[in-house]
């Protein structure tokens, strides 16, 4: 209790403890960034797919189910590329490997390095969408007017929750020329 007259020392002690909380919470705000990544990695919360190639592990093909995989593409602002999937959607059995192609053309007058970032919806399905080979694992440098067909080889895990019958894979294409140049 405070029956003794408060001294400047007791104030300093309390202030020090409180400043510790303040600094700790500031650090906690930044710690949320890696924590969020780990959390999403475990739960597939943010629709992020594997960013490195996985080997195909044949657990057999579940022919009793058919899953529709849809492909959509977006251009992030200011990248003057034509970028589209060659087929809009494909039906696969879980466990079955498929290859689909994407088309890209640089319509600018100078070379641009592009990077496609994938995302799966519903997010919970992201962990079951396995890419064996993907153009999104690499940067795509294209000269002016150069065009390219890019391959995606994938399979859908047989453990995909039963209530999911349609997956949408979205690619957003970013211009990363400046970032590459500044490295």
């Amino acid at each position: 209790m405070t029956s003794d007259k408060p001294t400047p020392q007791s104030h300093t002690t309390t202030v020090k403890k409180l400043m510790f909380v303040v600094v700790g919470m500031f650090a906690f705000g930044f710690a949320l960034v890696p924590l969020y990544d780990v959390f999403c990695d475990i739960t597939g919360l943010n629709g992020k797919t594997n960013d490195e190639a996985v080997a195909y592990t044949a657990d057999g093909i579940d022919t009793s189910r058919t899953v529709t995989v849809q492909f959509i593409t977006h251009n992030a602002k200011q990248i003057p590329w034509k970028f589209k999937p060659l087929i809009q959607q494909i039906k696969v059995h879980p466990g079955e490997q498929k290859v689909v192609k994407f088309y890209a053309k640089n319509q600018a007058t100078q070379a641009i390095v592009g990077q496609a970032v994938p995302s799966v919806s519903p997010g919970i399905a992201a962990g079951y969408f396995q890419k064996i080979e993907c153009f999104c694992f690499e940067r795509q440098p294209l000269q002016a007017d150069e065009e390219v067909e890019m391959a995606l080889q994938f399979y859908v895990d047989v453990d995909l929750p039963k209530d999911i019958s349609t997956l949408t894979l979205s690619y957003t294409l970013y211009d990363i020329s400046e970032k590459i140049a500044s490295l």
Partner: peptide, 25 residues
């Protein structure tokens, strides 16, 4: 309030210093 200070700092560095806290690219 320190968490708010942190998040506005991330917005600042994302906007002007090329970090990618909130940038999917």
């Amino acid at each position: 309030m320190p968490v708010l200070a942190g998040v506005v700092t991330m917005v600042l560095t994302d906007t002007y210093f090329g970090t990618s806290f909130f940038n999917a690219a």
